[in-house]
Design a binder for these strands. Structure first.
Lengths: 363, 363
DNA sequence: CTGAAAGCGCTAACAC
DNA sequence: GTGTTAGCGCTTTCAG
């Protein structure tokens, strides 16, 4: 049973059956508008290259048939997705909502969509997400933090996908990043406390094993204390998840410490708010008996009572700049490779001079 | 210049050039594993239908070549995306983070990804997003609220994409939804205030023109007051955006009202927190001089001082159930069409009996 | 259990 | 300015 002419068979099939149950395709539009599929495609992507009449007939046919472009076919044929991937650790801490929103906004303004992946602070889950985003052929990637396996970076690079790191300045200058300096920001916060007269200061931060920003902040805290000749008790340092309740329980422990500190630096506002709540519940006045400084300057922080002293991070600007940098890289344009943004210490009402100087720790 | 054998030409091209700069495809894997592309595809999608040896050789070749599936090709050929779309109004109100997280979790557990679109409360922007999600060939859609143009619904249905409405029980029983009853929940909150002895109650809610949940809550507030024979002054009703500062400024106006109410019902916690802050700044004690009840029970609400009395909404469960219902519909399984979840009024410390009974309003 | 081959719907040379 | 046509990389009958 030799088939006489396979090609003819194929073409016949194609033109004769507009896919019974299938949706309307570019072929249908072309036929109704009396042009070729190429012209329809052009009318869609480069309208200026098509005559006005043809364009109008195509538009009419599209509207009449409720035609919807097939993104898969477009992506497959054009080898571009006009999509960027965004990897964030969590969606419930609103600080990431700010940067995410900025990324979305800039991407959209430039005709790109964004696919967001939430890793929940799990490195392995993040790798799976990177794989998935690569399978979806994202044109670029916005990453959170620099710490990830060499294999993960390898995978990204092998696929020729440009990326930019946010929330952490890359140690390796070859890796593009847009961030503020976590160390500098931490120094500002801790030195504010020290300048106020605090000598015994506790630390509540995120898990340094899965969060390089938490690690950077913890190390900076310790370096700052050391620089000022102040001791850091290991039992006054708490690494916890990003939850109000974690900040609260850490403060609970701090309050019953045999040698209670007069201030606590929280490496994020969520934990700071939990910590502040615990003080209030325990009848410990903030800031009179306990100064608290946070990090992030969440929108809620200035609506707390007392308002939280905290480090304002340029989340929105970071997302914006990172996306711009990424889009430039995608389109092969030159651009900065490493942008350092500034932070501000916002002194509000949760910090003050300690009431009674605790001289115990000064040897 | 008649080409002698077009088909031969095409095939020759295909097999001879593995795309110089291109990435590795299934053809390369097939060749290296000594099987056909069909077998590679099966090894990937229905491993049980492939012999163990073949499967292993394919796996090895995949690993060795760092092969990455092309999602576009898969989607185009299989006519399925294994992706669902999620439309939310905003990303900065953390209440949507909860439901979004649940949607992501359930989707992922079932092998689906989720594409989220943020409409910023703009109906036109939402329609554009629906179009984009349809172009990306989502297998289903999770919508927020029921109110949208007939054209939008038409578009979705014409493409045969199943959907489910959340955050609002659909009036039309033909439209699937998973939600709590906004009216009942509002009644519970307002009746709590009335039971406490409040007679003059203000309302702060979202914009009812672009938010049917806000509308439902406003109408329920008015109905509840009416049922109890209580008047609702138009100048004690505020429709504002979902921002702390909006709640604050509304409360500012309320506090200087010639006939200040003793309680305010806020249709969401964000505005309630802003309102509570304004009271504190103005030296008006909550709850002694002003009772405040919120709606949503955001995680932050119990860390406020005083803790906020509010309506707990089953955001997580709603996202979960909605996604399950949607996946069932996608896979053609039967299932519920309308699920009503319950809410709880969480009485905390921002509400109390009014200090001085305001008898002025009782005619 | 496996392979051959026909597309999925669109884009992009290339020719006219 | 417009049409022809060869794929993009994969899935999916259909045979065997």
């Amino acid at each position: 049973m030799a088939d006489s002419n396979p090609k003819a068979k194929r073409r016949a099939k194609r033109s004769s059956r507009p896919r019974p149950g299938g949706s309307v395709t570019i072929h249908r539009i072309a036929a109704e508008a009396g042009v070729s599929t190429a012209t329809v495609s052009r009318a869609l992507n480069q309208p200026e290259k098509v005559s006005a009449e043809a364009r109008e007939r195509v538009q009419a046919a599209i509207k009449r048939n409720h035609y919807i472009l097939d993104g898969f076919a477009v992506g497959l044929a054009s080898r571009r997705s006009r999509t960027i991937g965004l990897l964030i650790p969590t969606i419930t801490n609103s600080i990431y909502a700010s940067s995410t929103q900025a990324v979305q906004r800039v991407a959209q303004q430039n005709g790109y969509s964004v696919l967001v992946g939430v890793s929940e602070f799990s490195p392995s889950r993040e790798e799976v997400l990177i794989q998935k985003l690569l399978e979806r052929r994202v044109d670029g990637l916005v990453l959170t933090g620099e710490a990830r396996s060499a294999a993960a970076y390898e995978k990204i690079k092998r696929n020729g996908v440009p990326f930019v790191v946010t929330w952490q300045l890359t140690a390796d200058p070859a890796l593009p990043s847009v961030s503020f300096d976590n160390r500098k920001a931490t120094f500002a916060a801790v030195e504010h406390l020290i300048a106020l007269g605090h000598r015994r200061i506790g630390l509540i931060c995120g898990r340094t094993d899965v969060n390089d920003r938490a690690l950077a902040r913890r190390e900076a805290f310790e370096a700052c204390m050391a620089r000022h000749g102040l001791p850091v008790s290991a039992d006054l340092v708490f690494e916890r998840d990003f939850e109000f309740v974690e900040g609260r329980s850490a403060m609970h422990a701090i309050l019953r410490h045999r040698s209670r500190p007069t201030a606590v630096f929280c490496a994020n506002d969520i934990q700071a708010i939990g910590a502040m709540y615990e003080c209030q519940e325990a009848g410990v006045k903030v800031p009179e008996q306990m100064s608290i400084v946070g990090f992030d300057d969440l929108p809620i922080s200035q609506y707390m009572h007392p308002q939280l002293t905290t480090v304002r991070v340029p989340a929105d600007d970071m997302g914006k700049r990172a996306t711009e940098m990424l889009l430039a890289a995608i389109e092969g344009k030159p651009g900065d490779q490493r942008v350092e943004l500034t932070t501000d210490l916002v002194v509000r009402r949760s910090t003050a001079t300690p009431k009674r100087q605790n001289r115990a720790s000064a040897s």
